[in-house]
Amino acid sequence: MFPGIDGFHWTLGHVLFLSLFFAVVLTILVTVASAAWRTSRDFHSHRAIDLWWRSQFAELPVSDRRCRHELAGRVLSRTCDNAFDCRHCEKYSQFAVLPATGNVGPLGLDYADDRYYHRGHTWVKPEEDGTVSVGIDELAARLVGTPDLVSLPEVGQGLEVNQTAWRMKKNGHEIEVRAPLEGTVVGIGGPKEGWYLKIRPRLELREPATLRHLLCGPEVHGWMSRELERLQLQLHAPNTAPALADGGVLMPDLMNVVPPADWDTVLADTFLQG
């Protein structure tokens, strides 16, 4: 194997054979080390979470990947191919100037106009001190009710957009809530406070592009009406055909009210989990 070890001879065949063997082993090891190094580099350069999210996004149902402009009725049909990051979407400005033509009928849910919404059912409210408050929207709140357990990040922890910001547990189901934007946690609340995190965004809030990836205005209504439809179809009683309600409002604490539903799927679709 090596010079000095019994059986090794300085012959062409021996040296050639072992050189080839070591070259192959070295190639394999370098390949693995390179993958590990690239992984570490991605984490240091904040790219890791983006890669992670994009991979998970690609696995989402097409119905969950609709473009915000379709939701607002600006275009007939468009699937997002940019992992909901409109900040880097070349087509954004092209469609954003078109008039919104979506239906704006009552939904029975309260969506304040001063907030921005992430597709993972969190809202972002800019505060005067340059931070933002983050909470879960009303649909998510009615779904989960009061969580059995909430695990929040520590103050000072950095978050990337679409990273798991905090976890909740309800009836044995773990829910991972995605961060709606990148920044540093400067305060933690909870269900009783009505907000979960205060975040100092990494980008300037004054910049219009900072919150561009979040839904606002007519897009929220289009998105929410589709989410309500999905929820009704998913929460149909066992052994019955899925059906849409022709009225009424969403009940609070649905996970306790409709225990036999396929909550794994419902929660995964609602909170954009893989």
Binding site: A35, A36, T39, D42, F43, I49, L51, W52, G274
Partner: peptide, 16 residues
């Protein structure tokens, strides 16, 4: 794949 480090390593290894 819910663990970012696993998925990113998978992504990088897959490229190689």
């Amino acid at each position: 794949r819910r663990l970012p480090s696993f998925l990113v390593f998978e992504h990088q290894l897959h490229k190689l």
